[in-house]
Design a protein around this nucleic acid. Structure first.
Length: 111
RNA sequence: CCAGACGGUCGGACGGUCGCCGGCGGCCUUAUGGCCGCGGGAGGAAAGUCCGGGCUCCAUGGAGACAAGGCGCCGGGUAACGCCCGGCCGGGCCUCUUAGGGAUAAGGGGCCUGAGGGAAAGCGCCACAGAGAAUGAACCGCCUCUUCACGAGGCAAGGGUGAAAAGGUGCGGUAAGAGCGCACCGCCGGACCAGCAAUGGGACGGGCAUGGCAAGCCCCGCCUGGAGCAAGACCGAAUAGGGAUGACGCGCCGAAAGGCAGGCGGGUUUCCGCGCCGAGUCGUCCGGGUUGGUUGCUUGAGCGCGUCAGCAAUGGCGCGCCUAGAGGAAUGGCCGUCGUUCCGCACUUGAUGCGGGAUACAGAACCCGGCUUACAGACCGUCUGGCGAC
């Protein structure tokens, strides 16, 4: 899975579609420069806790995306997850369900 | 055995499954890259960014003065330090010995602790209370004189205030008192002795107006250029600026080269020295910072063991080892088993079973040496107290 690294790509997500869930806010935007695969970016703010907590949230969201994205994400699309506090200790299967539902909702009404 | 203080060490283990980031080897590929195999992948504080360095770039070279900031008993250790070790002195607690009926005093030991140079250079401050908070003060007092006194004079023992009141106790002395005199204790100076030194001892001398605060200014001694890996180097799209060159032109001298006046360059400044500019306009050519990529980037004041020197911090020597290098940021996600510990209930009161809880603080960002702060639990050592056994 490719990763969004450049600041410009993150700033471009301001015009993206949004989907809320208990553990995160998902943004999705079709990127013409992007190739066949879907790309993932994570935003974990300092508001959520110390470095240890933020790292764990990042890893859980990345692990969940690795399971869900191949089947449900649309190719040629940039996704950004803005983490919420619940992502730290939410049951993992529930986290997977959150992500599936958000992806389905975003693919139903494309930009 | 239990509790406390201080110091030190450690700070979960194993398996399954799915992944991530470097390294090495092999194969494929024009190349970016892909696949396979082997091996590595967070901490004692990685944290706070408070000191000290390495490294890198920038700055005008040398000498001096000033400013600003920091440090401050002595000796040693160290690349260096505001750190560490040892010692000295002061303070606190405990304990022992001697003297004593006791209060207590003198001496010794242990543990903890101190921004610990200078207050008879100067300035300043010392709240409240109190008469008075410092170039010897007088409220209540005490004493003398006067017929008496609210008057004049003497005194600083007693009372009172305060964090602190001008050496303490006793005897003598006196109108009352006072180092006024004496004894002991304390204080100041101190030949000389011991020690590398801080400092300790101290013959002898002095009645002894040397209150405290320097984390208020200050004085003395020592130290210090600035910025930081987003440093810096290399490769490199577009647009401003830069360099070379030609023409015209230029404060003074000169045909020109150049020189001079003048300007700029240091935290401030003096002297000497140095560098740059010393007009600009137009044309032509060259080159090129920022996004991005590569590098810096991990072999280092390195770690482990042994040995020698040293009270120790630490150092010397020998052997062995290579131990994370990310970059919107890898070092993990999920599941299970066990350990450690606490609580409850059973009974075969234990090296038992069952159930439940807890398992911390915290995530490398150029690299080292320290300090500080956070921390579930476990272990070791020293000291102190309590209980028990001999």
């Amino acid at each position: 899975m490719d990763v969004i690294r450049k600041r410009q790509d993150f700033l471009a997500m301001r015009s993206a579609d949004k989907a809320q869930s208990a553990s995160f806010l998902m943004l999705a935007r079709k990127n013409p420069e992007n190739g066949a695969s879907a790309r993932l970016g994570l935003t974990v703010t300092k508001k959520l806790g110390s470095a240890v907590i933020r790292n764990r949230i990042r890893r859980r969201l990345r692990a969940a995306a690795r399971e869900v994205f191949p089947a449900h994400a649309r190719s040629g699309t940039d996704y950004v997850l803005i983490a919420r506090k619940a992502a730290y200790d939410r049951n993992f299967t529930a986290l997977l369900d959150d992500m599936k539902r958000a992806l389905l909702r975003l693919s139903r009404n494309p930009t």
